[in-house]
Write a protein that binds this DNA or RNA. Structure first.
Length: 491
RNA sequence: CGGGGUGUAGCGCAGCCCGGUUAGCGCACCUGGUUUGGGACCAGGGGGUCGCAGGUUCGAAUCCUGCCACCCCGACCA
């Protein structure tokens, strides 16, 4: 076991936080609730960004950037929206400091009070729709498909690295359409992009579905989401895509002239994923030895650790190590030759395992003699000895296998911990035990949903797309229901 | 904002109850040497206004009072 990390099974939250710290992903900062993302953690985020950005462009979107400050009045234009975010906004009231009269530091200059306070964006619908009003006049201006990479601030009471932070990095897509069908299609398309990204890159199986009315995004007509299962059985919302209807168009008076020369309100969508995905990645795959990164998102694919007793051996090993490094790099892989002479091999093995590097190569005197190399995979910790000449192809195949294996393992875990439940007693029993996803009937009312939450802390994560239509009785009220919904404890 | 806890070296902690040499240990760091196929060892070394402010006392990390900060569990949330 990695030194200093608690066991996953013993204290999951602490294991998670320690892992984030020990694997060099992030650390607490001077500002409460704000975290520093360290270079290794940021490198993973950059990989996610690059992949998503490509997918957005492939679906016709372009990037732009809007201001971080939002005039207070903007936020109140959409009633539900302001209600949803009002409680967690950082507000800028002044624009200047001055030297304190007692000579101790600086104070806010009361003379420099802003006429209208500015809100540090918790999300950008309002600034963006106020801008779209100027950009959209005709049906020819539509659809407008924009994405923004940005930071947002939500003043949360309790924070946890990556999962919930006062400031976080994300992308937010904001699109405008001439008709409802097209906007709905866009909402679905982008949820699909997220699901594909989660499954193919994060190696994380997700459940797609609709949020219930009470869990819906503030200002949306419909909120779609992908929900993933963490290793403690809790659910994590990994991405959302909102159909905004004409709510923001009405709030900001965004109209267009259609082909018949009639004014119409624009239809909108918005969708986002955040650095929370980092949390998902960590919690879904890591083990007691540290991170397990899917090759497609690993900043370093292969690390080479030399084992040597003297300079001549190191020279000989370096030559071969650099040869395989170059060969793999030509295949587009990121390879690290760890020739630090300040640490022993055992230390390096543990360190790279902690950091989740998918493949480790070790080469020592024995390998020089036999013309072999040791290949170790992070996910299963299996090692194999192969002829040096075969190393390259073995590694390439191994990386694909690891990506697949990590996904399959997560998928198996998800299936094993998804329960079909027909009584409230069993429902409570499962939540008290290992948790997981619970598929149960619900009468469709917010009252029942709230009661269940109050009694069990479990929430409806989503109404799954792939749920079979079947007659049943609500697990709590006994009233008729047509479809099972997904319940779970959530992050 | 409720309930609990902790502040002592970069990190993790002991010492406090029962006041008394120069405040200690592990990790990390620096120097030298031996090591190197799963977190090396030996020797030497550097680093502290014991959270802050008062008080009690011949004497306070230790006792008392006040303040501050942070963490955990709830409520809130991507």
């Amino acid at each position: 076991m990695a030194k200093g990390i608690p066991k996953r099974s013993e204290n999951y939250p602490m294991w998670y936080q320690e892992l984030v710290k020990k694997a060099d992903l992030a650390e607490t900062s001077a500002v409460r609730g704000c975290y520093v993302i360290k270079p290794y953690g940021y490198a993973i985020w950059e990989k996610m960004q690059a992949t998503l950005d490509k997918m957005f462009k492939e679906t016709g979107h372009t990037n732009a950037y809007f201001p971080v400050f939002i005039p207070k009045s903007f936020l109140s234009k959409e009633a539900d929206h302001v209600e949803g975010f009002a409680k967690e906004c950082a507000v800028v009231t002044h624009y200047r400091l001055k030297n304190a009269e007692d000579g101790k530091g600086v104070v806010v200059d009361p003379e420099a009070k802003l006429e209208e306070e500015l809100i540090v964006r918790p999300t950008s619908e309002t600034v963006i729709w106020s801008t779209y009003k100027n950009w959209i006049q005709s049906y020819r201006d539509l659809p407008l498909l924009i994405n923004q990479w940005a930071n947002v601030v939500r003043w949360e009471m309790r924070t946890r690295p990556f999962l919930r932070t006062a400031e976080f990095l994300w992308q937010e897509g904001h699109t405008a359409h001439s008709n409802k069908a097209e906007a709905v299609e866009e909402t679905n398309r982008m949820l699909g992009v997220y699901a594909t990204f989660a499954e193919d890159f994060l190696a994380l199986p997700v459940t797609k579905g609709h949020k219930t009315e009470s869990e819906r995004f503030a200002g949306a007509v419909d909120t779609l989401c992908i929900e993933a299962m963490m290793q403690d059985g809790k659910a994590l919302q990994a991405g959302t895509s909102h159909f905004l209807g004409q709510n923001f168009a009405k709030a900001f008076d965004v109209q267009f002239l259609n082909k018949e020369n009639q004014q119409e309100m624009v239809w909108g969508t918005s969708w986002g994923v955040s650095t929370r995905l980092m949390g998902a990645l960590i919690m879904a795959h890591s083990d007691d030895d540290g991170l397990v990164l899917p090759p497609k998102l690993a900043p370093i694919h292969v690390v080479i650790v030399p084992i040597y007793k003297n300079d001549e051996q190191l020279q000989a090993i370096s030559k071969k190590a650099n040869a395989i490094k170059t060969a793999l790099e030509l295949r587009g892989l990121s390879v690290k030759f760890d020739d630090r002479d300040t640490y022993k091999p055992g230390y390096k093995f543990n360190e790279w395992e902690l950091k989740g590097v998918p493949v480790r190569l070790a080469m020592g005197p024995r390998d020089l003699e036999n013309d072999t190399i040791e290949i170790a995979r992070r996910d299963t910790k299996e090692k194999q000895m192969v002829n040096f000449a075969e190393a390259e192809t073995t590694i390439i195949e191994l990386l694909d296998d690891i990506q697949l294996n990590i996904y399959n393992k997560a998928q198996k875990f998800k299936l094993e911990n998804t329960h079909i439940v027909d009584s409230f007693e069993e429902f409570k029993k499962i939540l008290k035990g290992n948790g997981g996803f619970i598929l149960a009937h619900w009468d469709g009312t917010a009252e029942t949903e709230a009661k269940i939450k109050e009694k069990t802390k479990a929430t409806i994560r989503c109404i799954p797309f792939d749920g079979n239509q079947e007659e049943g009785k609500c697990i709590y009220s006994g009233k008729p229901s047509k479809q099972r919904v997904l319940f779970a404890l959530a992050y």
